[in-house]
Nucleic acid binder design. Structure first.
Lengths: 360, 360
DNA sequence: AACCAGATTTTGAACGATCAAACAAGCACG
DNA sequence: CGTGCTTGTTTGATCGTTCAAAATCTGGTT
């Protein structure tokens, strides 16, 4: 039987069915207010009955707009936790789809070498703009894209040059402040911070939150640092707990470090939450597991995804309307930043009264 | 300055630069053997110096092929572990890109309601085919797509009707067999299986592996079941360990259940690996963490991703060449199945000799 | 010199939509 | 009654590529 390529309805076939011209059908779709009410109804029912959908390629060829957004995903680092990708990917897909856009995945080599891929997708007119994530300090992409006037929004600040391009980010400093205030409110006065080396934008941001809230609360700051990871967190936690007059609360720059710290605490025969409070950052899926039940700063990833898409689409619209040309170009290129506030999910690693019931 | 929309090179501009006609340039790209060797060189250098890339929309409009593959991602269940998405997404993106294709993300409502989206993407000619994942028993998608002759490959079997469409899957039975043989090899003779309710394809597959290897090794099977999850695994583990003559090894249908089982073992004052071996399935990122160090069956996700893409592309090629029409249609519609073997990652939850070093 | 086969290149004609401008009809106004 | 304005609809051209067929060139044959 058949299975031949189904020939889809076209503007012409719909026009014929409704007894009007191509352009009228096109207007029904793109500028309904220009069409007389009864003509519109007639065309709409023809569209309905023929299951007509405008051909994307044809539209895109004519308008020079693809309604596709490029999203580069990084090679998954084995063993590394990527708490963000799937939630973020889902959020941007959903948000884009509500506005008639789609997300196109691609991968590149890291750093400057990968820029070719961006160029390729652009010059083929495959995508209208990009969503960046996993931005790093000194990331070449923002500068490269800005130079070429390519619309993009990054999830994560451009750490070196804040004014470069639009971004949405989660306020790490505010997150750590929540964490410090939480343990302070529980009575802790010796609060250590387990961090990453200086120079990573994310790590420095979170550290800044620690330092400022210590200053405000009159707590003497105690910072230890390593490259990050479960094992590193464990070692650092042991180190600060070995000190005379050790801290009673450990605020960590990431959940991986916090899980290590948690382990160190148990290894010393101390009870997390009771004897030493541990707080992480990211609220990865393991955090809520029994056995960890880690208090953690949770990022509003879905909200960030929606915001990134909205910001990108408004830039695309602005460009489409020619706003970007010489005179009034400023408002398109206006730097758009959005810093979202994270929330603190309190679990028993910091507050034993929230311990999960463990029925038997 | 500028920032105006960059006008890309076209076939015509390249042709002018090289002193040939449109079609010759097109031939250099699509059928180089038809072009004289020196003409080809001239055209190629013109392409190079103008940075020409064929316009996707135009090509797609003419050829009726988009070189885009749709991939539907499911709403991330909060708190649930999705060990697969990011690795799989990355693998298919990479594999597709090697062959000039791209992955287009979309989301749908589950079940039959979501089928509209597939129809929409198809009738707009946005995508050439689909990759399905998270297939469930009684999934309507395979049947729907097959009926319409839409090329697709599923990651995961069509559980109810194995002949329906192409799929790649990981052999769950083989995975559990590895697990059972592993603990048997360590001397365990009372081996229980913590499973899911009957009726889930994946769960039944894995259970089948348990039952057949028990039969082969002469082990009395002991199966307990619940809906799955950390808490359920913990409760089930307690139940079997409460029995007289309790098992010394727990093979679990998933890592979530295994993590629960692990916790149950420690709660009883037993040492995982020494007193009771615990094995999971999926090798989620938490599995390797200190504190768990869970032996687990690991799926070759990257390989599966590549296989899915290859299978889909070969179907697309076949259709493009008209092979699908009446007479020789059989070989395209030939059911293509690929069952990959998982591997066992042995850690200290089953074999204490592999315990991680825990320096201080 | 005429002819032919093969290799190479060029020329119309699509693909299906939108833009820009032209056209038609209806109505008010001087 | 002609003119201008508004509203609604249609027509030609175009986006950049590939298909199909026609045109040109080359060299060998008869």
């Amino acid at each position: 039987m058949g299975r031949r390529r189904r020939t889809n309805a076209t503007l012409m076939s719909v026009a014929a069915a409704a007894g009007v011209s191509r352009q009228t059908v096109s207007n029904v779709l793109n500028a309904p207010d220009r069409v007389a009410i009864d003509t519109r109804a007639r065309v709409e029912s023809a569209i309905e009955s023929l299951h007509y959908r405008p051909n994307r390629a044809a539209r895109s060829l004519r308008t020079q707009v693809s309604r596709l957004i490029g999203y580069c995903i990084m090679p998954a680092t084995p063993g590394m936790l990527n708490p963000v990708l799937d939630r973020f990917a889902h959020a941007i897909t959903e948000a884009a789809s509500d506005r008639g856009f789609h997300i196109l995945l691609f991968t590149t080599a890291g750093g400057r070498a990968g820029l070719d891929r961006y160029a390729e997708l652009l010059s083929q007119l495959t995508v209208d703009g990009f969503i960046l994530s996993d931005t790093v300090v000194g990331d070449p992409r923002q500068g490269w894209l800005t130079e070429r006037g390519v619309p993009f929004v990054a999830f994560g600040r451009a750490w070196r040059n804040e004014e470069q391009g639009a971004w949405v980010d989660v306020d790490g400093a505010a997150g750590v402040t929540l964490a410090v205030e939480h343990v302070y409110g529980l009575g802790h006065r010796r609060i250590a911070f387990i961090g990453w080396p200086g120079g990573s934008g994310v790590g420095d941001d979170r550290l800044a939150g620690y330092e400022s809230s210590c200053a405000r609360l009159g707590v003497t700051p105690l910072v230890v640092r390593d490259v990050g990871g479960i094992e590193q967190g464990r070692v650092l936690a042991h180190r600060v707990l070995d000190a005379p007059d050790p801290p009673t609360a450990l605020v960590c720059v990431s959940d991986a470090d916090a899980l290590g710290a948690l382990r160190a605490v148990t290894e010393r025969g101390l009870r997390p939450g009771h004897d030493v409070a541990v707080v992480g950052f990211d609220d990865i899926s393991s955090a809520g597991m029994p056995g960890f039940d880690l208090t953690s700063v949770s990022q509003p990833i879905e909200e960030a995804g929606r915001a990134v898409v909205n910001m990108l689409l408004s830039r695309l619209n602005a460009i489409e309307r020619g706003t970007s040309s010489s005179e009034s170009g400023a408002d398109v290129d206006a730097v758009a930043h959005l810093l979202l506030k994270p929330t603190l999910v309190i679990r028993s690693s910091s507050d034993p009264t929230t311990a999960m019931e463990t029925p038997r």
